[in-house]
Amino acid sequence: MDTPTADAGIYARDSAYLDCHVQFGEAGDRIISLSFPDQPDPDSGDDHPLLDRIEDYLGGVEDGFDDVTVGLTVPTDQRRVLEAVREIPYGEEGTVAQVTRMADMDPDESEDLTAVREALAANPVPLLIPDHRVRDGPSAAPPPVEQKLRAVEGL
Rank of each mutant, 00 (worst) to 15 (best):
Q98Y: 05
A16N: 03
P89G: 12
L155K: 06
F24N: 07
D67C: 02
Q147I: 07
V145H: 07
A103I: 13
D63F: 03
E62G: 00
V81F: 00
D104L: 09
E92Y: 09
A119R: 04
L18Y: 06
L72M: 08
V81M: 01
A84Y: 03
A27G: 00
R101K: 06
M102L: 13
T5L: 03
P37N: 09
N123S: 08
S35R: 15
D19R: 02
A84E: 11
L18N: 10
P143G: 08
E92K: 06
Y57E: 11
D19P: 00
V152K: 05
S35T: 15
V74Y: 02
V99H: 10
A151H: 10
L113S: 00
L128G: 10
E92D: 14
G9A: 01
P4D: 07
D131Q: 06
V61Q: 14
V134G: 02
L50C: 12
A27H: 10
A141H: 09
P89R: 11
P49C: 04
D47L: 07
E118D: 15
T76P: 09
R53A: 15
S15H: 01
D136R: 01
Y57G: 11
M105F: 09
N123M: 04
E111R: 04
R150P: 10
V22S: 05
P138M: 04
P130R: 05
G71Q: 13
S35V: 12
I10M: 03
A115M: 13
P40T: 15
E83G: 00
Y57R: 04
A103D: 11
G154L: 03
L127R: 04
P89Y: 03
D38H: 05
A140P: 07
A121T: 09
L72Q: 06
D63Y: 07
D63V: 08
D19S: 12
D131C: 02
N123P: 07
R117K: 13
I88D: 08
L149E: 12
L155E: 10
D19V: 00
N123W: 01
I54K: 04
P144I: 14
A97Q: 12
V74S: 03
E83N: 11
Y90E: 11
R79L: 06
T95S: 14
V68L: 02
A12T: 05
D56Q: 15
S139W: 01
D41Q: 10
D112K: 01
A119Y: 04
P143T: 13
D104K: 10
Q78K: 05
L155Y: 12
R30I: 06
T76F: 04
